[in-house]
């Protein structure tokens, strides 16, 4: 099947310069083999992302409920976003979540990685405990969080009670829910950051550290002036990766708050999901998605540009 697909464009090419049959035959064979190997996966990946992404742009310029014929409305969907308080609130929640989540996961990731890099007893046990939540699905994590943070009998309030602190509403409070969602996301994702940093720490040449110690540097100064700069490329990557994770957070919100209470955890992705699949406003949903895409791209480019300029070679 893949070979048929690869062969079609070639078969229609007019032969302008006839070459010796053997050489042309060999070139054709080489191309067929190459496309036979690379074609199927490329077709799937491009067909499930580049193609729909382009299509989404055309959808974003229509008014469409998915059933009746779409009507072309030009840029009106985009103009409407500016006056949509829900879209503004969703963008704000996404921003707050990202600003809390990304630095926290990087700092915790470095801290945990440095701790797990020590040669002490029980280190295997600690490592297993800290990484295992990463394997649990966001859906299961969300349901479990609903239990742990339950205001009546959850472990979180029970802990506060034992410490003599007042009970909280957590996911049921509009002012706390987003912060709690962020904590839950950290619980599930920090293991990943820690693993990445742990590998990076173990990649730092031992001679560098030893030389500094011989020169009389304290452990803290070694960390500050040798370890941290060495971790910089990984940090650029982690920052981008975690930004994407935070901005695309959906499963966890779906199984904890569904955007509530009082829309306080409605992020852009969740808002688009509601627009498209609960209120059937496909065109407007696609426009919000495109705008977010543009903003994310600009942010990513800014981070990459900044890191290039300050001399780290992650890309």
């Amino acid at each position: 099947m893949a070979l048929t697909f690869a062969a079609t464009p070639r078969a229609h090419r007019p032969d302008v310069t006839p070459r010796p049959a053997g050489r042309r035959g060999r070139a054709l064979r080489r191309n067929l083999t190459g496309w036979g190997f690379a074609g199927p996966a490329t077709l799937i990946v491009v067909g499930l992302s580049l193609f729909p992404a382009v299509w989404a742009f055309f959808i974003s310029r229509t008014k469409w409920n998915g059933i009746a014929p779409a009507t072309d409305v030009g840029w009106r969907n985009y103009e409407r976003i500016a006056q949509d308080p829900d879209a503004a609130a969703a963008a704000q929640h996404t921003l707050v979540l990202t600003v809390l989540f990304v630095p926290a996961s990087i700092l915790l990731g470095i801290l945990i990685a440095v701790a797990l890099n020590q040669r002490i007893r029980l280190i295997g046990f600690y490592r297993t405990c800290i990484f295992v939540p990463y394997v649990a699905s966001a859906a299961a994590t969300g349901i479990l969080a609903g239990f742990v943070f339950n205001p009546q009998f959850g472990a979180a309030n029970e802990t506060l009670r034992r410490l003599g602190l007042p009970a909280q509403q957590f996911l049921e409070s509009p002012s706390q829910a987003l912060l709690v969602v962020c904590l839950i996301a950290l619980w599930g994702e920090v293991g990943f950051c820690a693993v990445v940093y742990l590998a990076a720490l173990q990649d730092i040449p031992k001679e560098l550290v030893e030389a500094a110690v011989v020169d009389g540097a304290s452990r803290w100064r070694v960390f500050l002036h040798i370890t941290l700069p060495e971790l910089r490329p990984v940090t650029v990557f982690t920052a981008i990766w975690q930004t994407i994770t935070a901005m695309q957070l959906f499963d966890l919100i779906y199984t904890t708050t569904r955007g509530g209470p009082m829309n306080s955890t409605q992020t852009v992705v969740y808002y688009i999901y509601e627009l498209a699949f609960e209120t059937q406003r496909l065109g407007y949903g696609a426009a919000v998605a495109y705008l977010l895409f543009a903003v994310t791209m600009l942010l990513t480019l800014a981070v990459v540009g900044y890191s290039r300029r300050s001399g780290s070679e992650a890309f």
């Binding site: 193609f51 901005m247 688009i272 999901y273 895409f293």
Partner: peptide
């Protein structure tokens, strides 16, 4: 580079 929210609808 393409985020998931852009792909949901199409």
């Amino acid at each position: 580079m393409i985020p998931i929210q852009l792909l949901m609808i199409p």
